[in-house]
Design a protein around this nucleic acid. Structure first.
Lengths: 70, 70
DNA sequence: TAAGCATGTAAAGGAAGCTTTACGTAAAGG
DNA sequence: CCTTTACGTAAAGCTTCCTTTACATGCTTA
């Protein structure tokens, strides 16, 4: 699953730390998700969507089971 | 976080087992989520949304941090 | 009664998400 | 040079998600 977290964050001119604080998580969590190391919980995805004022589907791009859209 | 999984499943006339199979999880997972014991991963939420042809936000109702909209 | 089906509970174990702490690197400014 | 700021890695530990196995309950139907 891909995501546009970094993109959205930078559009708002926020640092990872500021975003982390706004979402109630640590900076490590933001880094891991931006880097695609893992996906957020559904809860956190909702908080992100609400924060950026978009739909979950606008942040996270689910490509189907095979993982890839190459 | 509340969800309308059971409602959507029954609209389709599916058993928990059939839905589980369609989503690639076990029946226990369906039960746990329908009963609100835990939330699905973002991945699974996407598969559900795709399966029922709705948005994630139409299945899962996020009430904010405080858990409640009382 | 018995058998089958759908739903439920419980518990143990593994995988994924998140935190905490610590350290590394690069750029910008004094 | 030194300090600060932002980004990054790594590892240990806890919590949440999910699986596997087993058993229980209620309903239907033979």
């Amino acid at each position: 699953m891909k995501n546009r977290l970094r993109e959205l964050r930078e559009e708002k001119g926020l640092t990872q730390e500021e975003l982390a604080k706004a979402l109630g998580v640590t900076r490590q969590t933001i880094i891991a998700i931006e880097k695609g190391r893992y996906n957020p919980s559904l809860q956190l995805a909702f908080r992100m969507a609400r924060f950026f004022n978009v739909r979950i589907e606008d942040i996270f791009i689910y490509e189907g089971e095979n993982g890839e859209g190459r």
